[in-house]
Design a protein around this nucleic acid. Structure first.
Lengths: 296, 296
DNA sequence: CTGAAAGCGCTTACAG
DNA sequence: CTGAAAGCGCTTACAG
């Protein structure tokens, strides 16, 4: 058969009932290293079981996400891992209940759906407390998406402030800051508005909590350009502990997340559902603040 | 039908002859930002035409690559874009000729196969000449894989040295340097062996050409740790112009590659073959040295 | 043990 | 215009 260059048609095999052995992994942007590492972890775990990960980017477009759910329903995919959910629909909720979709990382909807994620609120609380304990007083919060009342990280951030007897300055909530460039631009903009005189400094934050290292690294570069000294005048707290966090100068203080464990657990959970096996227990997904040089 | 929750089985549709509308994109590591950006470009170009990119990591394992070629032959994939080729086999060569596989980025084999890539030799020549023109004299070369006689970048590097009347010190060819950590470790090792006295410095390179920014950023961090001053005592030339190149301090001088254009061209070429249309012309894939702070 | 038939779920061409 | 049948390429169960 090798001689005749014959290759069985896998589509016909699939139709006979074995499924496609493909699992979709829905993320927002593959160019965000956090998602690259997550997809890598899922891919390795699925490959070990003879399945294939299909990377599906939403680019934060709900229409794309709907296409991916349709691929699942039309049986092109045996399952779906969603690390980002734009449409909090009944349809998705039902597929989650049915075990065809496994949610991980982040869910900003209002339903009580199972999701594989770190304790987002506690992680943000710990990072914020870390900043306050080091004497920073005027904290800003920065996120990639739109402001969302379900955001657990912001809840943890607010709670830490409250527990330390501080109130949040609403002017320092920055949303839609997605890229390195966005982070740098934000800092430059703030620095440009800095009032003259030493007292004027209280008009500016002295610490920023960023929801990702990529953006934090951009902020750091923006501060360098603007002559804003880190960590003396401004502390920067990243999130994820991506490789870039150890490559900047000063290096980034950040919150380490167990990306590999999240991806592996999501892969094993969706496979257990597909095979009708008992879902394995999710390991503890612990986070730690990694002290580096962007905080004093 | 919406009511009855009916969804046509796409596998049956595929069997009737429309193909899977899936194109595999073979890369070595998705965690290397260069490949993340390449996959992103391919994905966007394919999505616009109703096709889907399936990210396939080889992890530099030839057996995995063979599996991906088998997926193509068993019709699970309509085509394959290979940005990394481990097995220089007859089988792959035939599939390239047949238009089922499109090569891009890099091919270290010996066959005269079409490939979508920058002028690797010229790009490396220009980067090397840039270092020599700035007075660096003792150049090292660093690559991620094994040493390969077909490596066009090393040919360009050697040619620039020769044209400037310099010979290459073979002791300064560093291979298998893949990650940030590998880059940092290499620099620390070199610095540790540095002989005492000012003259001893000639025993060390004063400039390093790195085949990727990720590794170059690791080298920079290693130099910082070791107290090796960049760019005075050591120049670092990166490759790709990944975002990290602008996020380090000092920022990385590097060679900008048109990643998006490469990915888009690869996607359009494979689609043209699948559809039996004329293959669109490949745009000029020009590179430029981006001067930043790791060179004087 | 071997070989022909049924069936997976569609779509398309054809008969009524 | 409507509806039943053929066929995509396999695998499995069954008849000979």
């Amino acid at each position: 058969m090798r001689e005749l260059n014959y290759h069985p048609n896998n589509i016909a095999q699939q139709l006979r009932g074995q499924g496609t052995k493909m699992i979709g992994v829905v993320i927002s942007f593959i160019t965000n290293p956090f998602f690259a590492y997550l997809v890598d972890a899922v891919d390795r775990a699925l490959s070990a079981e003879g399945y294939r990960a299909v990377m599906l980017q939403t680019l934060e477009d709900p229409a794309k996400e709907a296409q991916y759910v349709a691929m699942l329903q039309s049986k092109q995919l045996d399952g779906l891992i969603m690390a980002d959910l734009e449409n909090d629909s009944d349809e998705v909720a039902e597929l989650v209940q049915a075990g065809k979709i496994v949610l991980c990382n982040r869910y900003l909807g209002t339903r009580p759906l199972p999701i594989i994620q770190i304790d987002e609120e506690q992680a943000a609380y710990a990072a914020t407390a870390y900043l306050l304990d080091r004497g920073y007083q005027r904290l800003a919060f920065c996120t990639g998406g739109e402001r969302n009342p379900q955001d657990l990280r912001f809840k943890g951030f607010e709670k830490a402030l409250a527990d330390h007897g501080r109130t949040f300055n609403e002017a320092w909530y920055f949303s839609e800051v997605l890229t390195e460039g966005d982070g740098a631009a934000l800092i430059k903009r703030l620095a440009a508005n800095r009032p003259a005189g030493a007292d004027g400094d209280t008009a500016l934050p002295d610490a920023i909590f960023s929801n990702g290292d990529q953006v934090a690294a951009g902020m750091l570069q923006g501060a360098r350009t603007a002559g804003w000294r880190v960590p003396d005048q401004l502390a920067i707290m990243g999130f994820d502990d991506q490789p870039v966090a150890a490559l900047t100068n000063p290096t980034l203080t950040t919150v380490r997340q167990p990306i590999k464990a999240i991806g592996t657990a999501a892969a094993q959970t969706v496979l257990a559902h597909i095979r009708g096996e008992a879902v394995p227990p999710i390991p503890a997904l612990t986070t730690t603040v990694v002290p580096r040089e962007t905080t004093r």
